[in-house]
Design a protein around this nucleic acid. Structure first.
Length: 255
DNA sequence: ATGGTAGCCGCGCTA
């Protein structure tokens, strides 16, 4: 079973790339972020034709999440009951007995800003909700754009990014708190090459220079981590014409 | 050098 996550930065623009990628990689579950589409205009027919059922929680212009699955989705829940939020950033669905949570964590803009405070409050509420969800069903995947580079290994220039947004101590502490709940960073279950990133700024030829960060993650609860046989970043998508600024990430689970 | 680019029912905002 392959579980994947991709911040597509507009599903309208990226739909052809998503369909190509689904056909090539054949993931079983896909979490999408920044769909930037209201549910009424979600490309349901194209996704169904690709062989996926889906649930979506979107809005115009900003945010928006969706979960696609080859199997059926049940017990769908939008948002975090501990943190009512008009921004569409969280979607839970159960697939094959596994709770799949698709997350688009706030970016935070700048350390100390109002958006940064929102990000930290949002992450605090996420941890509280996850504690409850894990108690209800220990089979859980949390996948998405976390907007946090957990470690200096996940940053192309740790000195330049030291203490900056996406890398600050408080953000990293919030990420560690998720791990402390019993979640595991699937990518780090395996030996990985240095300078493996999932996001590169559109500006300054960042991708060409591999000036990126690893901010997209698939976290697995312990029962699922013990079934995990591999993790990957699909950076080739970033080379396409009109790419998302994020590459898809995936984790493979044994049956 | 606070720049640069991409997306959006743009006319600034978010990333």
């Amino acid at each position: 079973m392959i579980v994947a996550s991709w911040n597509v930065n507009s599903l309208k623009v990226r739909l052809p790339q998503l369909l190509d990628w689904l056909a090539r990689v054949q993931p079983d579950v896909v979490c999408l972020q920044e769909t930037k589409l209201e549910d009424a205009v979600f490309p349901a027919d194209e996704i169904a034709a690709a062989g996926y059922q889906f649930t979506c929680s979107g809005q115009k212009t900003y945010n928006g999440v969706a979960v696609l699955a080859r199997g059926s989705l049940s017990d769908v829940q939008c948002g975090n009951p501990f943190y009512p939020d008009p921004q569409k950033r969280l979607l839970l669905a159960t697939v094959d007995g596994v709770q799949v949570i698709c997350a688009y964590v706030p970016n935070g803009q700048a350390v100390g800003s109002d958006k940064y405070a929102y990000k930290l409050a949002w992450l605090d509420a996420l941890a509280r909700w996850l504690e409850e969800r894990l108690a209800a069903n220990p089979q859980l995947v949390l996948a998405g754009d976390f907007n946090i580079a957990p470690d200096d290994r996940d940053v192309h220039d740790p000195l330049a990014w030291n203490g900056q947004i996406l890398c600050s101590d408080a953000e990293r502490a919030a990420f560690q708190r998720l791990l402390a709940l019993g979640l595991h960073d699937s990518f780090r279950l395996f030996a990985q090459p240095a300078k493996a990133f999932s996001w590169w700024d559109y500006r300054m030829l960042a991708f060409q220079k591999n000036q990126g960060l690893r901010i997209d993650h698939i976290l697995l609860s312990s029962p699922l981590a013990s079934r995990c046989t591999g993790a990957a970043i699909h950076r080739e998508t970033r080379k396409l014409a009109r790419p998302s600024d994020h590459a898809p990430v995936s984790a493979t689970l044994a049956d």
